[in-house]
């Protein structure tokens, strides 16, 4: 038991070190640049203590739960040998974790507001709702397709940069043709899709698959799923914009 406590304490100290830069930056700008006292110092300290404890628990849980589960599932799929099961799992994992993402819901609502003010869609709340829903589905399908493609890449051992560079070219070409109003939203949608719980799971899945398949290198083939998941929504949303805005 003392060993576990010692380990937890070590993690706690690592969290303190990780949060130090934020505290220093905010303190420096508050005191030196803006020359203002800290409002509600007590609340800030209680909040910081919660952040540190929370980060420590999260990392502990990562190593106990998310990483082992992702890897054991990857191995089980590889052993089962059913391509359909693995690919549908990959798609569902991407789709399911994105469709309910709060950041995405917020961005979609904001985008619908912009589109209706720009006159691209009707000014009714129904039209906005439809637009926001369509955008959310587009991004969720994009992430599902990205994880699926990423898993196919691991199975086949394709070099990642061919696919990523191809994706960049697609983004550049589509940006050229897409309506201006959608471009900023499309670029941002790539960033909002990868949540704190999805990332460790998807990483463990990729690395686990690369370990389980003969001839694959976990470093070379296991990583890269997140990269697909942040690139493909840009492409899908640009296309969505071209279809909706005409």
């Amino acid at each position: 038991m003392p060993k576990a406590i010692k380990g937890f304490f070590r993690l706690l100290m690592a969290s303190v070190r990780d949060l130090m830069p934020i505290v220093l930056v905010i303190a420096f700008f508050q005191i030196v640049v803006l020359r203002q006292p800290f409002p509600d110092l007590g609340g800030v300290i209680v909040g910081l203590a919660m952040v540190i404890l929370g980060l420590t628990l999260f990392i502990q849980g990562l190593e106990m739960g998310l990483f082992p589960l992702g890897e054991s599932m990857a191995q089980a799929f590889a052993r089962k040998g059913s391509l359909v099961a693995l690919l549908s799992f990959a798609f569902m994992l991407g789709f399911g974790t994105t469709v309910a993402e709060p950041a995405l819901i917020a961005v979609a609502a904001e985008a619908a507001k912009v589109a209706s003010e720009a006159g691209a869609i009707d000014r009714t709340s129904e039209a906005r709702g439809n637009y926001a829903f369509g955008l959310r589905m587009t991004v969720a399908v994009a992430v599902g397709a990205a994880i699926l493609l990423g898993v196919v890449r691991i199975l086949k051992g394709w070099p990642i940069h061919h696919l990523i560079i191809g994706g960049y070219v697609a983004v550049v070409v589509l940006t050229w043709f897409a309506p201006d109003a959608i471009v900023g939203i499309a670029y941002d949608s790539g960033g909002v899709t990868t949540s704190t719980i999805t990332v460790p799971l998807v990483t463990a899945l990729g690395v686990g698959l690369a370990y389980a398949i003969k001839g694959r290198n976990p470093l070379l083939d296991g990583f890269g799923l997140i990269a697909f998941a942040s690139l493909s929504p840009m492409i899908f949303v640009l296309v969505f914009g071209m279809v909706i805005h005409g």
Binding site: F58, I59, Q60, G61, G65, L66, P68, I197
Partner: peptide, 9 residues
């Protein structure tokens, strides 16, 4: 572990 992740987040 999932419990820790939830509580931690």
């Amino acid at each position: 572990g999932f419990g820790y992740v939830l509580l931690g987040l």
